[in-house]
Amino acid sequence: MITIDYQNRMPIYEQIVERFQTLIVNGALEPDTQLPSVRNLAVDLAINPNTIQKAYAVLEQQGFIYPVKGRGNFVSGDSEVKNRKIQAFYRTLKNVVIQGKELGVTRDEFLEKSKEMFEEGQYDRN
């Protein structure tokens, strides 16, 4: 379900947040699905439970999950969460376009490269 890239400069808790966000937004984790316990996920990933707790706290603050005392954390049914994530993507895309223009990338080059990456499924975080 969740994998950690130890070569990635992104902090581990942020990687966990990002992976769960993707699973939730894509519908792989449906509303009211229970997440793994902090302890179990920490053991599975061989990382400190505090790291998992921090990731879950961020996900809760962002509205992706909700806690139930004594039972664990569950996926939120808030449909607005996906819309906020999509809007954040568009803001990032806008910044990429601006940066490309500053570097002299033409519209046609940008669109062609985007199309290639989209069709090939190149979503690597390199």
Rank of each mutant, 00 (worst) to 15 (best):
A42F: 02
Q7V: 02
Y13Q: 12
N8G: 00
I12F: 13
V17T: 15
M10S: 11
A55D: 00
A46Y: 00
L35N: 03
I2D: 03
G104S: 04
I4V: 15
V58D: 10
L23E: 11
Y66N: 09
L93C: 09
E14D: 14
I4N: 02
E119V: 09
I12G: 07
G104I: 05
M10D: 01
I52F: 00
I24A: 05
Y56E: 01
N73C: 08
I16Y: 04
E80F: 12
V75L: 04
N126V: 03
G77R: 09
I4A: 03
Y66P: 11
T106I: 12
G121M: 10
E116Y: 15
E120D: 11
G100H: 02
I12Q: 05
I98E: 15
R107P: 01
Q99C: 08
V105M: 03
G63K: 08
F89N: 07
V75I: 12
Y123W: 13
A46C: 00
A46N: 04
D5H: 08
K85L: 09
P67W: 07
N26V: 07
L29Y: 04
G70R: 09
Q7D: 12
N26E: 15
A55P: 05
P67L: 02
S76G: 12
P67R: 04
T106K: 09
P11M: 11
N50L: 06
K113S: 12
V75M: 03
G27V: 12
L29T: 01
P11Y: 03
E116Q: 15
T51S: 14
G100R: 03
F74L: 04
I47M: 03
L35R: 03
A42H: 01
V58C: 06
Q21K: 13
E80K: 15
R19V: 14
I65K: 00
D108L: 06
Y90L: 15
F89T: 03
E30W: 01
L59S: 02
L35Q: 05
E112L: 10
N40S: 14
G104T: 05
A28H: 15
N48F: 07
E30T: 03
R39Q: 01
N83A: 15
E102M: 14
V105I: 12
P31I: 05
Q15P: 04
L111T: 07
L41V: 01
T33S: 08
F74H: 02
P11W: 06
R71W: 10
M1T: 14
L45F: 07
V68K: 11
P49Q: 05
Y90T: 10
N126H: 02
Y56G: 02
E109G: 00
Y13D: 14
Y13G: 09
G27K: 07
T3S: 12
R39A: 00
V75H: 02
S79C: 05
L35D: 05
E102L: 15
A57L: 10
I2F: 10
A28L: 14
L59K: 01
M117R: 10
V97D: 09
Q62P: 00
G104Y: 06
F74A: 03
L103C: 04
T51M: 03
F20H: 02
V58T: 14
A55H: 02
N126G: 09
E18F: 07
N73G: 01
K113A: 12
P49C: 01
F74P: 04
N50C: 02
R9Q: 05
I2M: 06
V81N: 06
N50S: 12
N8S: 10
S114W: 13
E112M: 10
V38F: 00
A57D: 12
V75C: 08
V96D: 01
P31G: 08
I4C: 05
E120G: 11
A55W: 00
V105W: 01
